[in-house]
Design a binder for these strands. Structure first.
Lengths: 195, 195
DNA sequence: AAGATTCGTTCACTTAAGTTAAGAAAATCG
DNA sequence: CGATTTTCTTAACTTAAGTGAACGAATCTT
């Protein structure tokens, strides 16, 4: 179980056994059942989540309708906005599947940074990389049609279609479930511009 | 001129005079004329940009058409993806106006981190905050119609409409210039749901 | 100031997404 | 296993965005 976390971190720095122990001693591995809500609108929470196994999603409620804004699966991490800006959350975070997560708050991070200063470099690099990736993903979204976004998601995250209800994928693509259903028919009837 | 930079940084940590001097000694303030291209598709560059005065934008070329993906104005910073992943850039960065920028690369950052370790904490916090903001902005985009995005941009960055050609704003909103022009007419004829 | 280019608007037409509603299919739960 | 709830699909209609083309206005250039 820890190996998923340490393999992920190994891309940035190699941890010593002692450093690994510091992390494990924090007792950050938690299990959640499908449907568990980790963060609610209005809450101010300090916790971030790293997915060991399973899938979590964030969404907002707009006029009583869920709008899914992100999916996080194995080796991805979710840092809610309210953790950074300390304001009540405007979104929800919930488990799409039974999940095992690393759950940590800012106090735990500071504790680790003190015992183990290299960890802050790691977090900086990680956060810079996540930012760069998020920008690239946003650029892609901004410059694509719903159909291109759908085909792109099929290529980049095919697993999501097996794990997640379609209406959640639809709002993730910025369209209604009806449009997604219709679009898929269009594409099988006329499989022209699939990449 | 430096005050814009230091005021910005003051939100995160208060710099000593000595620390300020270290930054100024790097000689990072540069002037560019409107239209200057800072980064081209295919280049691998290590530089990031912080806007002191002026406006820069990033865009990609898709089938010979520019797609604007970001505008950066006073006290905003632009870290191109190629700086992080060291791969050839897929996008351009250019000056929309005559601009004064802080231009710095990774080597300069490392130099500062060594002389002045608190700067790394600052960069981590900054980068975490930028990531959180980018996610929020993306969420907003994803869950809005083009019209809502336009009204939202009018509220949040009204200055852009004075500084930037409309066809660039159109692709920033994810639509064509024709659609934007049409939409504005619709809204003045029928000023119903403006916030 | 004249000429060239860029930019914004308009128009007619096509295509796709939103909306509302209904029902089928699948998953969940007792 | 059957009942209930959730999810997906289909359909008819409405609305808005994409496309291609044309033209005038604004802006650069020299």
């Amino acid at each position: 179980m820890e190996t998923i976390l340490f393999d992920y971190l190994a891309k940035y720095i190699t941890l010593t056994e002692e450093e690994k122990k510091i992390l494990l001693d924090l007792d950050v591995f938690k299990q959640y059942k499908k449907g568990s809500i980790l963060l609610r609108e209005g809450q101010v929470s300090d916790f971030g989540y790293f997915v060991i196994k399973g899938c979590i999603r964030s969404f907002t409620m707009v006029d009583g309708v869920e709008k899914t804004t992100a999916f996080y699966t194995e080796a991805e991490s979710c840092e809610p906005l309210c953790k950074i800006n300390k304001k009540p959350s405007t979104s929800y975070v919930a488990c799409v599947e039974d999940s095992i997560l690393v759950v940590a708050n800012s106090a735990m991070e500071v504790e680790v940074f003190e015992k183990f200063p290299r960890f802050e470099t790691l977090c900086r690099l990680l956060s810079e990389e996540l930012l760069a990736n998020k920008k690239a993903e946003f650029d892609e979204f901004r410059t694509s049609s719903p159909e291109q976004r759908y085909l792109n998601l099929l290529n980049t995250r095919p697993d999501l279609f097996q794990r997640v209800p379609q209406y959640q994928i639809a709002s993730f693509l910025g369209i209604t479930p009806q449009s997604l259903s219709r679009m898929r028919n269009r594409l099988v009837d006329n499989p022209s511009q699939n990449s």
